[in-house]
Nucleic acid binder design. Sequence first.
DNA 1: AATATATTTCACTTAAAGTGAAAAAGATAT
DNA 2: ATATCTTTTTCACTTTAAGTGAAATATATT
Lengths: 120, 120
Amino acid sequence: MFNEADKSYPIELVAEFLGINSRTLYYYEKFSLVCPLRRGRKRYYSKEDINWLEYVRELMYEHGMNLRSIIILIKRRDAVILDRCPEDIVLCFKNYLARKETVARKINIEGEDDNVKDLK
Amino acid sequence: MFNEADKSYPIELVAEFLGINSRTLYYYEKFSLVCPLRRGRKRYYSKEDINWLEYVRELMYEHGMNLRSIIILIKRRDAVILDRCPEDIVLCFKNYLARKETVARKINIEGEDDNVKDLK
DNA sequence: AATATATTTCACTTAAAGTGAAAAAGATAT
DNA sequence: ATATCTTTTTCACTTTAAGTGAAATATATT
């Protein structure tokens, strides 16, 4: 479905691939669960973004983890929590953080991390 | 709060200790999340029951795991899922299973496991 | 300017988790 | 045996998480 040559994909395509509503992707973005690159107003999801999202869904539907705890993981990014995580989660999480920094640097301001919403 | 000499505790005391409603304990029992010993109609929770319950709460509120996934873990009791679990969960889970068998043998019928309700 | 597309907002839906209160069922005392 | 007290069960309700539909807004394109 995604060919290697392309580097990024529009939201509708990603939503379809993940089998979710595009609104859900906007929703996730509120919590900085994913940060697609933006050219103008339009969002472009990288292959890594998509992998991360697949992983988040797996955490939710196979590990039975809730969004809140994933968000806390992201916001706190501390060893206390990571200590108790299975290997693969830690790995995916670190990749996500790395990617996030790259995008942040690429786009504009640095580290302006905390207009991140909490779950209501 | 619990002295070593006693072997079991009534539901209200356990609920208070865990900081939850006793109805929640009945609720958990519907899914076989815990199986207190019963003398007559009254429930008696062992120290191990209480540890397991504390652990379940921790899974929910610190790991962000949902009840369903914990219940699936219990019902399936298969390696596929246990493989992906942190050490301590596997341990607690195995203790729970062992305890459950003991109680089952002690009380009456064996292995009559599956009048266990699913989450609606 | 008109049309098309992407995003945002708002209110709504569904399901999980938990709980309050009354009814029911067992015990215990009189 | 009846009354009283306690534990359990049932039923309907509440709260919150997660997600979504549809209209309104904003931006781009012809």
